[in-house]
Design a protein around this nucleic acid. Structure first.
Lengths: 112, 112
DNA sequence: ATATTATATGAGTATAATTGCATATACTCA
DNA sequence: TGAGTATATGCAATTATACTCATATAATAT
C-alpha cells in the first residue's frame, strides 16, 4: 500500500511544517532547519523520508540541495493537495512558520 | 496538531482496511477480526486508536460493540472522505476484504 | 591547497508503536 | 447460578521512529 507510506510520511508535526513551507516555493535544507529550529541532521532525515515516500523531490544546485513538492504525486493523490493546500492553513504553527520564512528570506541570512 | 493524530491513526495498513470495511456500515469487533485475520486484542487496539483520533465512534448493543465512521470528523476533515471513499477503492486487499465481508455476513457465522 | 559552507549518514540512545498471551469485565442464555 | 461469547486491557517482547553527536562528502571561495 503506497498510500500507507505517504500517510506515515505525513504523520509527523515537523514534516507537516516542512510541507507547508514548500507549498509555493523550493527551499534548501538550511532554510527549513532555520525556520523549524531543529538540527541539520534531523532536518535532512525528515526531508529524506518525504522524498522516499515520493511527496517531494530534490535538485542539487552548486552546494545546495533544493527540495520541492512532487507535482505528479500530488496529482495522483488529490487528498495531499487538500492537506497541504487547505488543512495547514488552519494550523497556527504553520502560519507562524510562513511569516518566519519571509523574514529569513528578506534578511538574506540563510544561504544567500 | 489534531491532524497529526488523525494521520498517525490512518498510517497503518490494518487500520486503512478497517476503515474500508466501515465505509457503508457498522461492524462489531469480531466481524473485523474475522475479515482481517488478526487477533482479537490487536483488532480492539486498532479500533481504539481510530476512536481516540476521533475517526470512528462506538455503540454498545447487548454483548457487542459496534463501530462506525464518525460523520462529524469526516465533515471537519474532507480529505478523510477522499481517502476512505476513493483511495481505498484502488487497493486490492481492500477490495478483497469487502468480498470477504459479504460472504461472512451472508453465512451468519460471526456474531449471533 | 586550505578553509568554509551545505548536506548526508553511521552509530548510539530514547521513545513510541505493534503484537501476542493471559486475564478481567460485561452481557446472554440455559 | 454457571457456561459461553464479546470486548478490553495489563504486561512483556519486538520492532519502528525520532533525535543527537560526530564525521564524511561535495562544492565554493580565498
Amino acid at each position: 500500500m503506497d498510500i500507507v507510506y505517504i500517510l506515515k510520511a505525513l504523520a509527523d508535526e515537523n514534516r507537516i511544517r516542512i510541507l507547508n513551507l514548500l507549498k509555493n516555493r523550493e527551499l534548501c535544507v538550511c532554510d527549513i532547519e532555520a525556520v523549524l529550529g531543529i538540527k541539520q541532521s534531523n532536518t535532512s532525515r525528515h526531508l529524506n523520508k518525504l522524498k522516499v515516500a515520493g511527496i517531494i523531490v530534490s535538485v542539487k544546485k552548486s552546494q545546495w540541495v533544493y527540495y520541492q513538492l512532487n507535482d505528479s504525486t500530488f496529482q495522483k493523490f488529490p487528498f495531499l493537495s487538500i492537506i497541504i493546500g487547505y488543512e495547514v492553513e488552519k494550523i497556527n504553527v504553520c502560519k507562524d512558520d510562513l511569516v518566519l520564512l519571509e523574514k529569513l528570506k528578506a534578511s538574506d541570512r540563510c544561504c544567500e
